[in-house]
Simulated assay, not measured.
Amino acid sequence: MFASIVRRLIQALFVIVAMTIIVFIGVNVIGNPVDILINPDANQAERARLIAHLGLDKPLWDQYFVFVTGVLHGNFGNSFVYSRPALDVILERLPATIELAVSALVIAIVIGIPLGMYAGLRPRSPISRLIMTGSIFGFSLPTFWVGLMFILIFAVQLGWLPSNGRGQTAELFGVQWSFLTLDGLRHLLLPALNLALFKTSLVLRLTRAGVQEILPQEYIKFARAKGLREGRIVRVHVLKNLLIPVVTVIGVEFGSLIAFSVVTESIFAWPGVGKLIIDSIQMLDRPIVVAYLMMMVVLFVCLNFIVDVLYTLLDPRVRIGAEG
């Protein structure tokens, strides 16, 4: 098992190095930030000074090595727009995005797993069919359209919930959080539900498929033959084995919640990293865009590594295969 973990770590490092090259080159060959940042009436000398100040006068390979050297020292460069370290600007917005993503994931787990288990245990009941029909809508409806409908119904027509911002926050461990205040929770509910809609349907259908795959297994029949109660069979045997694929998918999907929360944050004006990256792309703020993409690469690599380890711990067959 130790050799397998070391091998995965080496693979993860190669992926990160390769992605630094792809991300840096891909971002730096698109557009010219000087055209946006400088006054249109500026003369050629002023343009040249700004280009030299931003380091854009150097060859691309030289810019890349300067970038890699800075990254190894925890420096992703200074933002063109904010004139501050890009990493600091992102870290200021990151708690809002993490809070939104964790809330959406909790909603998806709390709703998706119980409903999926019910639909798997009673597949022919009318409620199960209604649940599965609802999951199809969750997959099919566009996130931006659902978000706009949420705002129209719950914020404009009914006036129950606010439509934008984080609301009042409270400090915990030196970071401001919305879920610690009632006003913050009211602001958090709509964007979290909107972001969780697709993931809830995914977890629900995955759970249902897992239950239907596990129920015909021999160890379930053996447990029933021993006279174990149905509730214990479901809790101990079905749920434990069901967690193996669910944990794998949830781990990867948490990364996608953070990386792809851009639409939800834009619709609800949620001040997170997703909204920041949209503004930075429009302004061609390359250090912010590169730092964000690299953070997402590291996040996905780390999550996949953690999921691999958890999968190995949860499923003995994987450990046996790795040792063989």
Rank of each mutant, 00 (worst) to 15 (best):
V71N: 01
L72R: 12
L72S: 08
L72T: 13
H73V: 00
H73P: 10
H73G: 13
G74D: 01
F76D: 10
F76S: 03
N78Y: 13
S79W: 02
S79D: 10
F80T: 06
Y82T: 14
R84F: 03
L87P: 03
L87R: 05
L87S: 11
L91T: 10
L91F: 11
R93Y: 00
L94P: 02
P95V: 03
P95R: 01
P95G: 07
E99T: 05
L100C: 12
A101E: 11
A101T: 07
A101K: 09
A104Y: 00
I107G: 05
I107K: 00
I107W: 04
I107R: 00
A108G: 03
V110T: 13
V110P: 06
G112W: 01
P114D: 03
L115R: 10
G116E: 04
Y118F: 15
A119K: 11
A119D: 02
A119R: 02
R122M: 09
R122H: 12
R124D: 15
P126Y: 11
P126A: 14
P126W: 04
I127M: 15
I127N: 09
S128Q: 04
S128E: 06
R129I: 07
L130K: 03
L130P: 03
L130H: 01
L130A: 15
L130R: 01
I131M: 10
I131T: 14
S135P: 11
F137S: 15
F137D: 07
G138R: 06
F139C: 04
F139K: 12
F139T: 14
S140C: 13
S140V: 15
S140Y: 05
L141C: 08
P142G: 08
P142T: 11
P142N: 07
T143I: 12
W145T: 12
L148D: 08
I151G: 06
I151M: 08
L152E: 05
L152T: 07
F154Q: 07
Q157N: 15
L158T: 08
L158D: 07
G159T: 03
P162G: 11
P162M: 07
N164K: 13
G167E: 04
G167T: 08
Q168A: 14
A170H: 08
A170P: 11
V175S: 09
V175Y: 10
Q176P: 09
Q176R: 15
Q176Y: 12
F179S: 05
L180D: 04
T181P: 10
L182E: 14
D183Y: 10
G184F: 00
G184M: 01
G184I: 00
L185F: 01
H187V: 09
L188N: 01
L189Y: 03
P191K: 06
A192L: 08
L193G: 02
L195E: 03
A196F: 01
A196G: 08
